[in-house]
C-alpha cells in the first residue's frame, strides 16, 4: 500500500521533502482514507439491508393483510348475495344493485392493491451521498494519529456496532406516502351501501350486524 509507505516516510524526514510532495502525499492519504470509508459504508449498507429486509417484509405483510381483511370480506359477502339471488330469485331487482356494488368493491380493492404495487416498484430513496458522509467523518489528515489512538481499536468491535444498529429494526420511522385516506373513506361508503341493500331486501339481521363490525381500514 503506497499510502502507508508515503506517510511512514514523511514521519522520518518531513523537512527534506518539497511542499508539493507533501501536498501530494496528503492527497493520497486522504484519497485512501476516503476509499476505506466508502468501502466500509458499502459493506455496512449491504449488511444493514440483509439484516432488515425480512423484518421489513414481515411488518409490511401484516399491514397489508390487516388492510385487506374488510375489503376482502365485503367482496365475499356481495359475491355470495349475487350467487344466492341468481339461484333463488333470478328476476329480483336486487341483483342489479348488488352487481353495481360488487363492481365498486372490486374497483376499490384494485385501487388499494395498485397503490401498494406502486410503492413496491418505486425505488427506495437514494442513498445518502457518500461524500456527505465523508465530511461527517472529519477527514483531516493532521488530526488523524493524535486523535484516533484507541478509537480505532474500539471500532474493531464490529459486533457491538451491528447489534446497536440492529435495534433500529424494531421501529422504522419511514412510511411510504400512500394515499389510503380517500380509499378508506370510500370503503365506509361501500359498507354503508351494502347495509342498505341488506336492510332493503330483508336479508338476515346477523349479516347486517356482521357488516357493521367490519371497519374501514
Amino acid at each position: 500500500m503506497s499510502w502507508v509507505r508515503a506517510v511512514a516516510s514523511s514521519g522520518e524526514d518531513v523537512f527534506d521533502e518539497d511542499m508539493d510532495d507533501i501536498g501530494l502525499q496528503n492527497k493520497e492519504w486522504k484519497h485512501n482514507m476516503e476509499k476505506r470509508a466508502k468501502d466500509g459504508y458499502r459493506d455496512g449498507v449491504d449488511a444493514g439491508k440483509e439484516a432488515s429486509l425480512q423484518i421489513g417484509f414481515n411488518m409490511g405483510y401484516r399491514e397489508g393483510a390487516v388492510k385487506m381483511k374488510s375489503i376482502g370480506q365485503l367482496k365475499g359477502i356481495v359475491s355470495a348475495l349475487q350467487c344466492w339471488y341468481q339461484s333463488h330469485d333470478p328476476g329480483t331487482p336486487a341483483l342489479s344493485s348488488i352487481a353495481e356494488l360488487l363492481r365498486r368493491v372490486e374497483e376499490h380493492e384494485e385501487a388499494v392493491i395498485a397503490a401498494m404495487r406502486k410503492a413496491q416498484e418505486r425505488p427506495p430513496p437514494s442513498v445518502t451521498d457518500v461524500t456527505e458522509t465523508m465530511e461527517d467523518l472529519g477527514m483531516e489528515q493532521e488530526n488523524e494519529c493524535g486523535k484516533s489512538g484507541g478509537r480505532g481499536r474500539d471500532g474493531d468491535g464490529g459486533g457491538v456496532c451491528c447489534g446497536k444498529n440492529g435495534d433500529a429494526g424494531g421501529g422504522p420511522t419511514q412510511r411510504p406516502s400512500q394515499n389510503f385516506n380517500d380509499l378508506g373513506e370510500s370503503m365506509g361508503q361501500l359498507l354503508r351501501r351494502c347495509v342498505e341493500i341488506v336492510t332493503q331486501h330483508g336479508l338476515p339481521e346477523e349479516l347486517k350486524r356482521h357488516l357493521l363490525e367490519l371497519k374501514a381500514p
Binding site: R36, G40, V45, I55, P125, D136, G169, P172
Partner: peptide, 19 residues
C-alpha cells in the same frame, strides 16, 4: 463508514421489505 452504511442499509431494507 460501515456504521453509517449499516444505518442507511437498515433503513432501506426495512422500507423495501415492507413495501
Amino acid at each position: 463508514g460501515y456504521r453509517e452504511g449499516y444505518e442507511e442499509g437498515t433503513r432501506e431494507g426495512l422500507l423495501e421489505g415492507r413495501n
